[in-house]
Amino acid sequence: MTEEIIIAGFGGQGVLSMGKILAYSGMMQNKEVSWMPSYGPEMRGGTANVTVIISDDRISSPILNQFDTAIILNQQSMDKFEKTVKKGGVLIYDPNGITHHPTRTDINIYTVAAVDEAAKKGSAKVFNMLILGAFLKLKPVVDPEYIHKGLEKSLPARHHHTIPDNENAIAKGKEIVMPKYLLN
């Protein structure tokens, strides 16, 4: 199993930390992982993206231009990364703020209304965990017990009291992910 993922959105949405939790969780399950962030001019321009690879085998290139799954959280990232999903792959996006919805017909497309859900919950902080839940529902590449361990490992001890909230958000994300366009 190898899952190659791009997560892309605005800085501050928790894109990099969501990738980190995923990578830590994979590591706890004894998988090979890599986490390659954007750190260049795009970061300084407000957008952020990270490539995460989780695999049973040694990972070759940590830098990719084609992905099994793209998780897209703003319009700029949609413009840039819709085309990078491998044929038959998965695109997950939050429709909030998206003006040009994806149009590809050779991939599976899902929406997750995480901004709305986080607003309902009154906690913008769990936004990225709702998204992570949506991803894990579609691609259960890491077992839930290891997600727990990944949260423990990646969050500093002073934030460990937030782990139950994070896990609830992951569970909620699994519920609210909706198919938008599916291949036969």
């Binding site: 980190k20 990578a23 590591m27 090979e32 992982v33 890599s34 986490w35 390659m36 962030p37 750190y39 990972i59 940590p62 830098i63």
Partner: peptide
Amino acid sequence: DGAIGQMMEK
């Protein structure tokens, strides 16, 4: 290089 420096692995 910048990629090896910035990326995370085990």
